[in-house]
Design a protein around this nucleic acid. Structure first.
Lengths: 377, 377
DNA sequence: CCGCAAAATGTAACCGGTTACATACAAGCG
DNA sequence: CGCTTGTATGTAACCGGTTACATTTTGCGG
């Protein structure tokens, strides 16, 4: 009755278990496990022997069993909204290489536009991942707070929220750098094409723009609405050169007094831009800058001769448009890398002070910006 | 002594198991499992009750336990080489949406240039995934055949190999369509900038080009070396307009006789292109076409006035270069979708006849091709 | 040669589901 | 009324690892 355990004739098609290895090596499963995980004390000769048997039998540990037992899956999840291809792949790449180096796998879900759907995905990842890298709109985020998924280590991308670790882009600094560059070229009247209201990146870029403009003596700023699409950039630029109509601040009429009241130090902040055409356009992202470029081309306005144009992001296309776009480059893969690094610390033990890191940006000077034509005014 | 099981004071922090639900609902774990999986016969009232208890307790099944038990992880792996961002994200997107719809998760690993490394990744996915979508160079592929990972359902991208299911792009048809388009515009002397030798896409595109050229009365073809990089496209175009030097067929001098012997029907296949400059350049991918565009611009040759240029892939940039590039569009996401569809059939049961599907392409006419200038010759 | 601490290894109880088989109970039928 | 049949549910043996604790072996001082 004893020798039955050697093999049940049916079943078991190709799977070698730790028990098989133990039996073949003449030791117990515990010893095999110890050898394989290298942790405990095992006599070196035993270890060598077990290892050779394992290799001989082509033993591969069952991941699910290990996960169940030690309660870690060695996998992290990445959840992204509907971002453009280049961004998507760079984030993944960054996390991927860092994660692989640390022995982690990555479970990916992307292209979510609906916050509800995103929550579902997040829930569905429960139990499959040890941690999460998430880029989510504010709505999803607050829902996440209430969810049970919340107890997983989490790193947020491009969202400020001091309840979590986060990696952000230095949008503020990037915008300031660009304005400084334009100022250095001699521009004082600069138009900014804003991004969508709800977008955190857009907000920060706008903030950087506003702040930097205050530092320009005699600076005059103009803010145009936009939503990150090429079309909206086109429209904004057209609007700008169409006439001297003062549609500068379309929506938030309440914002101005609050703004200028808060910081009257700027001195020139109150200047009415009406009538004076800017000499440069700074778009909150490259797509809009490219749209603006088209509009100017359509109107026969030379860039950078008559009008300078700048963007933000340094998408691949920025290099190819005519003229090549001066913009702010962002190292997206670095963001992914850092996100994993942060996560991997939380993976060890929970409850550490939350940190936010910032990825710095780089000014990329191409051909779309030059000194204003009528420098003398 | 009985009431001890209600709670072990330490341990168990937040995890609700199926046993907890069973106990609370006053039924057995088997019943709970049956209710949750909806399969077996359970009295409707019991089901309702169990369901409500489960919800009340916020029960979430442990994925690892289920995986261990039923031997399926509801996850598929995607392994890609170092492809450009847009391609990467589109493939993932295609697989992702299809997979999610079917209740599958996706484990991703990308940007592998080293075949050995790719094999490691493939091995590491063993036990974590129920199937694989892989895009790999031939080298990796043959290694895969020997590996134990081979017993997983597998769908190959862009590789022909009748030992596996595969999804390919209709490179051959796309190239033919482009040549037909050029012929229709009046071109007969067309240069082709080839892709790298080892690349399957490149081979097929070349084949399509050659075949289509045979159908053009009085057609003269010219083949230039290239490696899919913008730089090589630039070099090829420069070479072309540099002089009338006959560097047309650099490497394979043996190819011509075999080729023309096989199909003497073309009639004009043997025409010597030496000395006659083509009126159109067809590059095996958009990057090279864009490189060619730069070269022509540098040489002051008007496109499409003096020379037509066409590409393949329809990368986003193609739309933005000057002039906008006429090219062949490929629906990458569709490839991902179909790959999952194929895979999902194999997931049910193994051993079905292997199938290869082909994604058709679309001619996108923009501004870079026109009738040849000296139509009269 | 004994005793004991340290080192090496074994035993078996988990981890949390699934499911074959056993059991309980109800209805249908001769 | 006893027996078959069928439905609803329970019991417990898996799945394949990990690891606390038990047990055996080894080494060494006395």
């Amino acid at each position: 009755m004893n020798e039955i355990r050697t093999r049940s004739p049916r079943r078991r098609q190709a799977t070698v278990t730790i028990h098989d290895v133990a039996a073949r090596a003449g030791v117990s499963v515990a010893t095999v496990s110890r050898v394989l995980n290298g942790k405990q004390l095992v006599r070196p000769e035993t270890a060598v022997h077990v290892l050779s048997v394992a290799r001989e039998l082509h033993f591969v540990p069952n991941v699910a069993a290990r996960t169940l037992s030690i309660r870690r899956s060695q996998t992290i999840g990445i959840v992204l909204p509907d971002v453009h291809g280049e961004f998507f792949s760079e984030v993944i790449r960054g996390v991927d290489v860092a994660a692989r180096k640390a022995g982690y796998h990555i479970l990916v879900s992307g292209s979510h536009s609906d916050p509800g759907e995103m929550m579902e995905v997040l829930e569905a990842m429960r139990g499959r991942v040890d941690g999460l890298v998430v880029m989510a709109p504010d709505a999803t985020l607050s829902a996440l707070g209430k969810s049970r998924t919340a107890d997983l280590p989490l790193v947020l991308l491009n969202t400020v929220d001091d309840a979590h670790d986060a990696i952000t882009i230095d949008n503020y600094g990037g915008a300031r750098a660009m304005i400084r560059h334009l100022a250095q070229l001699g521009h004082t009247r600069i138009a900014f094409i804003k991004g969508p209201d709800g977008n955190a990146d857009a907000r920060e870029r706008l903030r950087g723009f506003r702040h930097a403009m205050r530092a320009i003596p005699g600076g005059e700023k103009l803010e145009l609405a936009g939503d990150f699409t090429e079309r909206s950039g086109y429209a904004a630029a057209l609007h700008l050169c169409g006439a001297a109509d003062p549609a500068a601040k379309p929506a938030d009429s309440a914002a101005k007094p609050a703004d200028s009241a808060a910081k009257p130090a700027g001195g020139v902040a109150g200047a009415t831009p009406t009538g004076t055409t800017p000499t440069a356009i700074f778009a909150a992202n490259d797509s809009m800058a490219i749209g603006a470029l088209s509009a100017l081309a359509d109107r026969g306005i030379a860039v950078p001769g008559e009008m300078s144009v700048a963007g933000f992001d340094d998408i691949p296309i920025a290099h190819y448009v005519a003229p090549p776009l001066t913009t702010i480059a962002v190292d997206i893969a670095e963001m992914g890398r850092r996100a994993f690094a942060l996560l991997s610390e939380s993976l060890g033990e929970h409850r550490h002070p939350k940190r936010q890191e910032c990825i710095s940006t780089t000014l990329v000077v191409r051909k779309s910006c030059a000194a204003p034509h009528s420098q003398v005014k």
